[in-house]
Design a protein around this nucleic acid. Sequence first.
RNA 1: CGGGAAGUAGCACAAUUUGGUAGUGCACUAGAUUUGGGAUCUAGGGGUCGCAGGUUCAAAUCCUGUCUUCCCGACCA
Length: 469
Amino acid sequence: MEVKDITNRDQDFAKWYTDVCKKADLVDYSSVKGSMIIRPLGYAIWEEMVHVLDQKFKETGHENVQMPMFIPESLLNVEKEHVEGFAPEVAWVTYGGKEKLEERMCVRPTSEVLFCEHYKKIIHSYRDLPLLYNQWCTIVRWEKTTRPFLRSREILWQEGHTMHATKEEAQAETLQMLNIYKNFQEEYLAMPVITGKKSEKEKFAGAEETYTIEAMMYDGYALQNGTSHYFGQHFAKAFGIEFVNKDNKLETPYQTSWGCTTRMIGGLIMTHSDNNGLVLPPKIAPWKVIIIPIGEVDEPLKYLEQQLKENHITYKVDNSNKTPGFKFAEAEVKGYPIRIELGARDLKENKVTLVRRDTLEKITVAVAKVLPKVKELLEVIQQDMFNRAKERRDQMIYEVKDYEELKKTAATKPGFIKINWCGSEECENKIKDDTTMKTRCLIENEAVDGACVVCGRPAFTKVYIGKQY
RNA sequence: CGGGAAGUAGCACAAUUUGGUAGUGCACUAGAUUUGGGAUCUAGGGGUCGCAGGUUCAAAUCCUGUCUUCCCGACCA
């Protein structure tokens, strides 16, 4: 998928995206406005993500819990910045059966306050800390406009919530989880991502620091694919959470939260897929291989299936009564990383045809070599997909030193722009008014080499800016 | 919530300009022939034209209102 012209992005790219989702049968539109139905293939991809992430969370000491779905208004109101950030987009429940509720409740837009209320009950001593919790659940944010996976009213996600005795430990947790997300997305989703701190203006409502994972889509737009927040003691103080330390003195604990959603599926599509349909990285594809039998091939099929099973390579067999051509096209629409064309004609010569989904390259191998070749290809495809995505992204990051150049680049070249920045919200707003771009994240490991591109005052950091989903 | 576009069969669309029996392709059902890049033939089933009013002998078509969807913007993961 090549995006040639940023001005042409609008309808064509959006249409391509929704087409891929629909044709691959990842998603369907619900009669409930703003909500989507995740179809079996879409859900299977999510389950793969859940499986890997959940394992990583557990390896780092986290436990899964389930909190309530409803938040009483008074509870949401406890932390001022938080409620101001979320109140505009929550859904309210006002009736229970026929009874009008004395106090209305919102459907959780995120669960910080629910966790805090719970923490208050269970934290007494430094011995109770740290608390490392996670929950897999659905949240509701009343978005005005929606798009499959990228923005919907019901969001299927994971939210981690932790409490620590010290600031250092909480900050380390925030960064640890950020890195887990980054590694997961790069290693499993083959999506190169940029991580860093959000500006004051862009950070989470109630957080002291928000770290973000930013991926770049084909069209140069940014997709925020996860966040990790350090809250300091904001919520803990608002909720009156305290613990007794080793010296028998009262202290307030330090809090983090971090989350990522099915939006990653959208990111996957807009990073890898092409005009033939979905392209899934092998490590996250629910089925690594699709076998398409052509003609009478019962015995070799059995043999191949057995080999794949023994090696724990997930696969599907397309036994439908369609023509081979139809099945090939269908396999591409659905994004199976490797297609095996198991045909009587090839088998006469003791051969099998493999096809890479990412490059559509056809590879003919001897029957005995199929399994090692599949294993090799799964690794090669994964690596190649990441490399291609990274190369494309890097080519779409520009550095500018002058405001006119910034405006011109923003208008003509899709992608991120790297600038020196003074740190003021005033300059952020000016950039947004002129270009619709926002700051993505601060760049920590690069020294400033000039004045603020917008106002000319001394810069304090470099920052990426970009348009976003 | 501002600006644009569109709603006709499961899907994609035509018919609307000029009011007059609701159509095509894909999909679906049955049978036959096919099978290495989206098969062919035959025979079928499926629509109160988004909804509500109005104009008219007559409305998918004209008018008014309304709802929904999509795109851009704002907001957000």
